[in-house]
């Protein structure tokens, strides 16, 4: 009998209106966009979980070092990029009616080599993310390095994108070509 009955998603109380056979219920609930999301801050041990609407209030309250800037075309100026060790530079760009998390991450390998990764994540669903494109550009000294892609949706892990090199990737030597006084200027342009 259960095969003929449609069950509500476990996140129905959060707004999901989907009903489906019990055989498909678990698969749907794993990707349901009404489920709780983890804090998107990279490299932190924040255990917060909440709904999509609660993410931005959480970031401004609990991660107050994250600055928000308005505009589709902005300059993300990462300071002190030559510090030894692994670091994140994080900010929020608000434009086109939505918000994006901009992340520059520096990692060190076992040989002391440094890699930089820059990526943009929409604080929204994968369906919404498909409507946008972002461009990250390093410019200066008669050189230009550009990466263009669709922003990651909120449920995709930034760490996974970095692991897959699905982001702007460059090493410390390249960073030095574009840096001025230990500061790296990244032009971020978001389009619909």
């Amino acid at each position: 009998v259960a095969n003929f009955v449609l069950f509500p998603c476990r996140y129905a109380c959060m707004g999901c209106e989907i009903t489906l056979p019990h055989t498909e219920k678990a698969d749907h609930e794993e990707v349901c966009e009404f489920r709780l999301y983890s804090c998107p801050c990279p490299g932190t041990v924040c255990k917060w979980q909440g709904t999509m609407d609660a993410i931005m209030p959480h970031l401004t309250k609990m991660h107050e070092y994250i600055t928000t800037i308005e505009g589709e075309d902005i300059i993300f100026l990462a300071t002190s990029i030559n510090l030894v060790g692994a670091y994140d530079w994080v900010m929020i760009q608000s434009c086109l009616g939505v918000r994006f998390m901009l992340v520059l991450q520096k990692q060190e390998d076992h040989n002391g080599g440094q890699q930089f990764f820059a990526v943009v994540q929409l604080l929204g669903t994968s369906k919404e993310a498909e409507n946008f494109a972002y461009r990250l550009e390093l410019k200066g000294n008669r050189r230009r390095l550009t990466w263009e892609a669709t922003p990651l949706p909120i449920h995709e892990d930034i760490a996974k994108a970095i692991k897959n090199r699905d982001c702007l990737t460059f090493d410390a030597n390249t960073a030095l070509l574009f840096a001025e006084n230990d500061d790296l200027s990244i032009n971020v342009v978001i389009t619909k």
Partner: peptide, 24 residues
């Protein structure tokens, strides 16, 4: 034609916490 200068925001580095945990 005028060229709009994009707004610039200075972003300070944050210590990558996962690395700190690994060091403990």
């Amino acid at each position: 034609r005028t060229h709009r200068v994009p707004k610039e925001v200075r972003v300070e580095p944050q210590k990558f916490a996962e690395e700190l945990i690994h060091r403990l």
